[in-house]
């Protein structure tokens, strides 16, 4: 559904919601996850982006998530539960060299609908700031759709400017949920 925008602004195909997660062990996971705001125009995206902390400046344990309005940034959401994620894992030193660039490119891919006809399969993206290594992931809604998932992966890898020697993997949420992190198998790679 095309969201109507105020006169003079450039409407996005979708309204997007930015979420922030801050790890407070005294609270439940859900209580630590907060909706920051929603936007539906190019102008409002930049107004938001320029007023929030860069991902590289967040403390460990924090996440940003950008999801289409109506989809919550968790496996359990109906639009996510049959899906998975293209996962970018970064070395510690990349926080200061590439993390913010990769995250901004990810956001631009999402709001600009960069995946062509398969953009409708995109649910959102998540950046995890962690001491052991940061992660960025693009979440899609259907892990069994090989054509859609691999198209999104190829375009995403190209947009990040990753070398052809770098391999990125797609993991189904159903597999991630039942295995500990590094043991999750890749369903697809590009």
């Amino acid at each position: 559904v095309l969201v109507a925008a105020p006169l003079g602004k450039h409407p996005l195909q979708h309204r997007w919601a930015l979420w922030f997660f801050k790890n407070d062990k005294s609270k439940t996971w859900q209580a630590n996850l907060r909706l920051v705001t929603k936007f539906s125009t190019v102008e409002d995206f930049w107004a938001l982006y320029s007023h929030i902390q860069l991902a590289s400046k967040l403390t460990s344990g924090c996440d940003y998530s950008l999801f289409k309005d109506g989809i919550e940034p968790m496996w359990e959401d109906n639009r996510n539960k049959c899906g998975g994620r293209w996962l970018i894992t970064l070395a510690k030193q990349q926080r200061h060299t590439e993390l913010d660039h990769f995250w901004l490119e990810t956001l631009l891919c999402l709001i600009g609908e960069s995946f062509g006809e398969y953009s409708s399969e995109v649910c959102g993206a998540v950046i995890n700031i962690r001491a052991k290594g940061d992660k960025i992931a693009v979440w899609t809604c259907e892990a069994e759709d090989r054509d859609g998932v691999t198209h999104i992966g190829r375009v995403y890898k190209e947009r990040l400017g990753l070398s052809s020697k770098v391999v990125i993997g797609y993991q189904a949420h159903a597999d991630t949920a039942t295995k500990s992190g590094s043991l999750t198998k890749n369903k697809f790679v590009v």
């Binding site: 195909q13 190019v42 102008e43 930049w46 600009g112 953009s119």
Partner: peptide, 20 residues
């Protein structure tokens, strides 16, 4: 009509709003 924007178009708006 689908609203698609390439990265250069989107980036063109960045510094207008960064200064507001």
């Amino acid at each position: 009509e689908k609203k698609r924007y390439d990265r250069e178009f989107l980036l063109g708006f960045q510094f207008i709003f960064a200064s507001m």
